[in-house]
Deep mutational scan, measured.
Amino acid sequence: LRLEVKLGQGCFGEVWMGTWNGTTRVAIKTLKPGTMSPEAFLQEAQVMKKLRHEKLVQLYAVVSEEPIYIVTEYMSKGSLLDFLKGETGKYLRLPQLVDMAAQIASGMAYVERMNYVHRDLRAANILVGENLVCKVADFGLARLIEDNEYTARQGAKFPIKWTAPEAALYGRFTIKSDVWSFGILLTELTTKGRVPYPGMVNREVLDQVERGYRMPCPPECPESLHDLMCQCWRKEPEERPTFEYLQAFL
Score class of each variant (00 low, 15 high):
2 R>S: 08
5 V>A: 15
9 Q>E: 15
11 C>I: 02
11 C>D: 02
15 V>G: 04
16 W>A: 15
16 W>T: 15
19 T>D: 12
20 W>A: 12
21 N>W: 15
23 T>I: 12
24 T>M: 09
26 V>L: 07
31 L>W: 00
32 K>T: 04
33 P>G: 11
44 E>I: 00
47 V>I: 14
49 K>Y: 04
49 K>L: 02
51 L>S: 03
51 L>I: 05
54 E>T: 12
55 K>C: 12
57 V>E: 04
58 Q>S: 14
63 V>T: 05
64 S>D: 05
65 E>G: 07
69 Y>C: 06
70 I>T: 03
71 V>H: 02
83 F>E: 07
87 E>K: 13
90 K>H: 12
92 L>H: 09
93 R>G: 07
94 L>Q: 06
94 L>H: 05
95 P>I: 06
103 Q>Y: 07
104 I>V: 09
105 A>K: 00
105 A>M: 07
109 A>L: 15
110 Y>C: 04
110 Y>I: 06
111 V>H: 06
112 E>L: 15
115 N>E: 05
118 H>R: 02
118 H>G: 00
120 D>F: 00
120 D>G: 02
120 D>M: 00
121 L>K: 01
124 A>G: 05
126 I>Y: 00
127 L>D: 00
129 G>P: 05
141 L>E: 02
142 A>Y: 00
144 L>R: 15
148 N>M: 06
148 N>A: 05
149 E>R: 03
150 Y>D: 03
152 A>S: 05
155 G>T: 05
156 A>K: 04
158 F>A: 02
165 P>D: 00
168 A>C: 07
170 Y>A: 06
170 Y>F: 08
170 Y>L: 08
171 G>D: 02
174 T>S: 12
175 I>H: 15
176 K>F: 13
178 D>V: 02
180 W>D: 01
180 W>F: 11
182 F>K: 01
186 L>F: 08
188 E>C: 00
189 L>I: 12
191 T>Y: 14
191 T>G: 11
192 K>A: 08
194 R>C: 07
195 V>A: 12
195 V>E: 11
197 Y>G: 00
200 M>T: 07
203 R>T: 09
204 E>G: 05
208 Q>E: 12
208 Q>S: 10
212 G>W: 04
212 G>K: 05
213 Y>F: 09
219 P>Y: 14
220 E>S: 09
220 E>P: 06
221 C>M: 07
221 C>R: 04
222 P>A: 08
222 P>G: 05
223 E>G: 11
225 L>A: 10
226 H>N: 12
226 H>A: 10
227 D>Y: 14
229 M>L: 08
230 C>V: 09
231 Q>L: 11
231 Q>H: 13
234 R>M: 09
234 R>A: 11
234 R>N: 12
236 E>G: 11
237 P>N: 14
237 P>W: 14
238 E>A: 12
239 E>M: 13
242 T>D: 15
243 F>W: 15
243 F>D: 03
245 Y>A: 09
245 Y>I: 12
246 L>I: 09
246 L>V: 08
247 Q>R: 10
